[in-house]
Amino acid sequence: MKKIMHIIVGALISSMLFSTTMFAQELKVMSYNVKAFEGQTNDPDLMFRLQPFADAIKRYNPDIICIQELETHTSRQGARELLTELGSLLGMYPLFGFSYVKDVGWYGNGILSKYPIMNTFSNLLPYNSSRSYDQRSYVAADILVPATGNAGGKIVRIVNTHLDHRYNSPWYGQREEHANRIVEDALDSAIPTILMGDMNEDPTGTNSKAIVAFSAACDRICDNSGTFSSSKLDYIFGFPKNIWTVIDYTVDRTNNLSDHYPIIGTVKLGN
């Protein structure tokens, strides 16, 4: 009897979790490798100017942004906290995910959110000195999104990462290892999740093992159009499978502030 009750309660909770009446709101998400806000000209007077990035982002008005190649507090940046500065320009809550110490500051990934960030964790991914170029990491944030029919809101998890950029053996093996680690550690089947980032893999390549690993666990919320010139490197995934509906997806090729284009998807839970 107890087991039957557990099954019924579990089913009720699951249906409530993924019910569209509890999350009728659309969520617009963006992933953007900003190349440390250096700009594209190497002109020192134009480097680390955030207003152009803020203006470009505002054109899409995303609710949540995942940033990669985030450098902050370094001496060449004037020791400024750049993610918070960008957050201030956009009115968004910032979260920095550490990868390694750089100069007198730090390097890693970031999340900006229009909705309150409730729980966070970040972890370094396995580093092998013979195979790793940089120390890689992921950062995760549980964000409380207002939801129709639920005064307290609903938690959506955002996971952001930036995988190794090299293509030959054994580098793609490390990307696969890192993708599996993220799936195991950061994705929880009870929490609707959007996973974003610069995965540094073309989806059609024979060595695209990280994308294979992510695609086994998640649904793609993006197409294969190029995000780094004509190469497809940046992705948005939804987890668990079959709960996210893609409303639209685009790559902003008018934005040349970085060597990556920002990618933007609009999703909602349920059909």
């Binding site: 020791a79 957050g87 201030s88 956009l90 809550y93 910032p94 920095f96 229009k114």
Partner: peptide, 17 residues
Amino acid sequence: MFNGSVGTASQADLFST
């Protein structure tokens, strides 16, 4: 969005939550 205290954090070069 008006998020004045993130502006304060930015002005002070501090992290925030």
